[in-house]
Simulated scan of single mutants.
Amino acid sequence: MKPLRLLLMLCLLLVSGLASATNYTLWIHGRTGGATIGNYADFSYWGPASMDAGVNKKAVNWDGRSSIASQSGTIRNALDCFCTGTNWCYIATHSAGDLLIGYTLANYGGSARVKKNAQPNASGVCGNADGSSQTGWNIKWIASAAGSGGGSELADVGAWTTSEPLVQDLRVRTARAMYNHNETRGIWFWMYAGADGGLTSAFLPGQDDGVQAYHSAGAVAGSSGGSYCNPQDWFCDVLTLGAGPAEGGHAKWANHWVAFRDDGEDYNHYTDGHWGGIVAVMRAAVAVNAR
């Protein structure tokens, strides 16, 4: 009977270990922010917290004004909290949140991370789980609405407060040179690009959502932005769906996939306090797939 008892004990331990594994959905906002840093329940940037936005959703709030390098630590705290040990994460970003997670993965995704217990204090920092470490984080995929990995021409022309450190980082050439955008640690970015631009479209090449042009929201590689459009437009190259090159042979960054292109020009950049704009399309997809 002893071998049988030992087998039963091992099975119970295995089941217990599996039961403790949890999936989380982390939401990383864009410029301006306004939500409380360290409060993972504060979804005021996005809209009502009651909205279905993936399993065990957490709002990863940062100041929305400072440099990407200075705010990466806040993102790393959240990733350590919820995406280490037996826990796994889905990540959704908006606008500058894409630049922030891209920078963090490229520069810290290969570092040793102490496994945490997913029990944050008031500052958003979690305690150690068992004292052991792992390399990088457990991330299933990243969804990005109006991604700013390629920067915005609005930062170049001074449409925002030019003394703001984040605006300096959002300049097109600066954003594209900030880190190795091809280094995603093997994690896929699913890109959602809106095309309902407004008056600011005069400063943005090709299709845009009023803040981010398709070259950035569609993860087209290169040291500078270009003009990319929908298939019905005649005077610029088409932003293709999927991971393949845009029309004209312009490559996308590695492990970046255009999941949605706004052919109907229906979605702008802004959430408007109710999960609106291009975020609405991404949120619906995350709600179905982040489980």
Rank of each mutant, 00 (worst) to 15 (best):
L12P: 00
A59V: 13
K2Q: 14
S227Q: 04
T86K: 08
A284R: 14
L99M: 15
H29S: 03
A21P: 06
A106F: 01
N56H: 14
G34T: 04
Y90S: 15
N61H: 04
H94C: 00
P205G: 09
V220C: 00
A155V: 11
R261C: 00
T84H: 06
S16T: 15
N117Y: 06
A155E: 07
A145V: 14
G226E: 08
G244L: 08
T200N: 07
A19C: 06
L154I: 13
G218D: 07
S227M: 03
S163R: 06
Y45D: 08
L12M: 12
L241C: 13
R283S: 00
V55D: 09
W62G: 00
P205N: 02
A217E: 12
T22V: 14
K116A: 12
V279Y: 02
A287F: 02
Y45N: 08
Y90L: 00
E153A: 11
T25N: 07
W160N: 14
W253P: 02
N61K: 05
S133V: 07
G226V: 09
G277C: 08
D196M: 11
G244D: 13
D209E: 09
A69Y: 01
G197V: 07
D208W: 01
A219V: 11
N87L: 05
G150E: 01
G277M: 07
